[in-house]
Structures are given as C-alpha cells and as structure tokens.
Amino acid sequence: MSTVVEKHNLVRKPADQPDETRPFVDGMGRMQVYELGDLIVGKGEFEPGWKWSQHVKPIAGTDSCKAAHTGLILQGRMMVQMDDGSQVEYGPNDFFYMPPGHDAWIIGNERCVVIDVTGVAKYAKPH
C-alpha cells in the first residue's frame, strides 16, 4: 500500500510506492500508476526488446494501443508507429504526444523510462 501524505489537498507520493504496478508480458517492463488528486500519472519502464504489439496487446486485447499518451522520455529510445504507417522516434528529454492507434517499440539496448500524464488510466489493463 502506498504511503500518501495529504494536507489541504496537497498530495505527496514517493516514486517507489505506486498505487498500482501493471507488469508487461514476459517481464518486459511495467507501468507504475500514481493517483494524484484527479490525475492518474504513470512511470513506464520498458526493457530492451519491448514492443507494444507483443508485450501489451495480449493484455489490452486491441489491435493497436488505444490510449493517448502525453509525457516525457527520461531515458532510452522509443519508436512509435501510427496505424497509418507514420513514425516518430523519441529519446531522452523529449516531450511527447502519441495519439490513439499506434504500436511502439524500444530502440537499442537501454531501458526506456517515461512519465505519462494522460494515457495511464486504462493502459496495460484488460478491456
């Protein structure tokens, strides 16, 4: 259970104490979920070799990721491909917006760590 300090609507949660952790298939990473007032924020950790269509699709049960993601890449590199074939590569210190309808995968041998402020409520959960 997460330690929460809440005073006068101020919220503090240590990053190592998420409200929920959602593991990806084959141990290829996880999404840590934090409830901060009305906002649900995630810290995603994606291992080298991770690919949404292999490691989250079996959980989500959709053809592509249906979440819209907005956030910041802290480390590592991720390629995102929209259903129409367009692609963008993201790296450290890149802010991102990824609309619904995409696949994604890790580039290189470094773990990718992201903070996601919009697409976490239903991410990596069965629909």
Results as ranks from 00 to 15, higher is better:
78 M>F: 07
34 Y>C: 01
31 M>L: 14
114 V>D: 12
60 A>Q: 15
24 F>L: 08
1 M>H: 08
9 N>H: 15
28 M>A: 05
108 G>H: 02
57 K>A: 13
84 D>I: 09
88 V>F: 09
24 F>R: 05
18 P>N: 02
62 T>I: 05
74 L>C: 02
116 D>T: 02
109 N>G: 13
77 R>P: 02
86 S>I: 06
19 D>Q: 06
108 G>A: 01
15 A>G: 07
28 M>F: 07
54 Q>L: 10
80 V>F: 08
75 Q>S: 14
25 V>R: 11
123 Y>H: 13
71 G>L: 00
64 S>P: 06
82 M>S: 09
79 M>R: 15
44 G>T: 01
61 G>V: 01
112 C>A: 15
98 M>Q: 11
57 K>M: 10
58 P>E: 03
3 T>C: 07
98 M>Y: 10
27 G>I: 08
68 A>Y: 14
10 L>T: 09
29 G>K: 03
16 D>Y: 07
123 Y>A: 13
102 H>P: 02
46 F>E: 06
72 L>G: 04
89 E>S: 09
66 K>G: 14
33 V>Y: 00
67 A>F: 07
64 S>M: 10
29 G>M: 04
7 K>S: 13
123 Y>I: 08
5 V>Q: 12
76 G>C: 03
18 P>T: 00
79 M>G: 00
60 A>S: 11
79 M>L: 12
38 D>A: 15
57 K>N: 06
57 K>W: 10
19 D>R: 03
46 F>G: 02
27 G>C: 09
77 R>L: 04
31 M>V: 15
89 E>V: 11
98 M>I: 15
48 P>I: 03
92 P>Q: 15
97 Y>D: 11
57 K>P: 07
105 W>T: 05
7 K>F: 13
25 V>L: 07
118 T>C: 15
102 H>T: 03
35 E>M: 08
20 E>W: 00
76 G>T: 03
33 V>P: 00
37 G>W: 11
121 A>L: 12
59 I>P: 02
22 R>V: 00
95 F>S: 14
27 G>V: 08
32 Q>Y: 00
126 P>C: 04
116 D>R: 00
